[in-house]
Design a protein around this nucleic acid. Structure first.
Length: 309
DNA sequence: GGTAGACCTGGACGC
DNA sequence: GCGTCCAGGTCTACC
């Protein structure tokens, strides 16, 4: 079963998929040789794999499903892929970023890969806190295998999962209770993804609400903001400190380097995160080659703050 | 408002 | 093969 998805005229699949680490996390799979993105979805209780390819820049995306699904399921998968690839960020939106930071005009870098749902972005962010990258890869792989049956688990599925199961089988450590509680809040409707996705709300309003969620601190809240398309905050972590020291030549304690990194990127205002991120990404690519050649297992061995020094 | 220490996992290292 | 150390944000208690 094959269907098409219209892409913005500047859209390049390999560049725009391989723009943020989540493209390496289950149930996503980037195939470097084929230049294709594979993603497992759940449809009517069964898994289905979507394979996305693009023949030329700006051309329609071809989505091949591993089995047939209903029209409504196909539309849901299409909407999920559109969110992941930020197809709503058109060429004019990209130009606005490049006007503020022309360094990325030549490469066209602007879109940042994300998940098909707000819920998955939140859980993925929790699995990236206080762990090295290989553990984040493992946690997402096991959440999909153990709870989601191959796909990323829904809020309902995770809400019904025992805390002990998450710890013992998914190896999420002390994040177990936080993940279950978060999932229950979404499953019960206490946390409404639509509220967070509403562009009418201010950054500060959304950030404050995120900080109320279990397992979400300043770093995670700022990261979820960028995943929501709000780029005026930087999730400062040990990577920021490494980048500040190694690339920007900043000195001092970790806390003072973080403050200096924030001040360094402040002139980019509403686009601060993207300027920061693509600068770091360029540094990774300098070390490890173009991101669309990366394979999950290789990044698991090299992508840590200490490993990228 | 700022800070110390606990929370888990997995990899690196020394023996 | 075993023990120890370390990296990595959030949360709570305390000053």
């Amino acid at each position: 079963m094959v269907f098409g998805l219209a892409a913005p005229r500047d859209f390049v699949l390999k560049r725009d998929v391989c723009s943020y680490g989540y493209f390496l996390l289950a149930p996503n799979r980037w195939l470097p040789r084929e230049g294709a993105l594979e993603r497992v979805f759940s449809a009517s209780g069964r898994v289905v794999t979507a394979r996305v390819t693009q023949a030329r820049r700006g051309g329609e995306l071809k989505v091949a499903l591993s089995r047939s699904v209903s029209k409504s399921e196909r539309e849901r998968i299409g909407a999920g892929l559109s969110r992941m690839l930020r197809l709503d960020e058109d060429a004019a939106h990209v130009r606005a970023f490049h006007t503020l930071d022309p360094r990325w005009k030549a490469s066209g870098r602007a879109r940042l890969f994300r998940s098909p749902t707000f819920f998955e972005d939140v859980i993925k962010t929790v699995t990236s806190c206080n762990v090295t990258w290989p553990s984040t890869i493992q946690m997402n792989r096991r959440l999909c295998e153990v709870v989601g049956g191959g796909a990323f688990p829904s809020a309902d599925q995770l809400a019904r999962t025992r805390v002990q199961t998450l710890r013992a089988r998914c190896r999420v450590g002390y994040r177990d209770a936080r993940i279950v509680e978060l999932s229950r809040m979404v499953a019960r409707g206490e946390v409404d993804p639509g509220w967070f996705e509403d562009p009418g709300r201010s950054d500060e309003e959304v950030r404050a609400a995120l900080m109320e969620l279990p397992g979400i601190g300043p770093y995670a809240a700022n990261n979820i903001l960028q995943l929501l398309g709000r780029y005026a905050h930087i999730p400062l972590d040990t990577e920021s400190v490494r980048h500040g020291r190694a690339v920007l030549g900043l000195t001092g304690s970790a806390a003072s380097v973080m403050k200096k990194v924030r001040a360094h990127f402040a002139p980019f205002g509403s686009q601060m995160f993207r300027s920061y991120w693509f600068e770091m990404w360029a540094h990774y690519e300098k070390k490890a080659g173009p991101s669309w050649t990366w394979e999950t297992e290789r990044t698991a061995k090299t992508f840590t703050a200490s490993g990228m020094k």
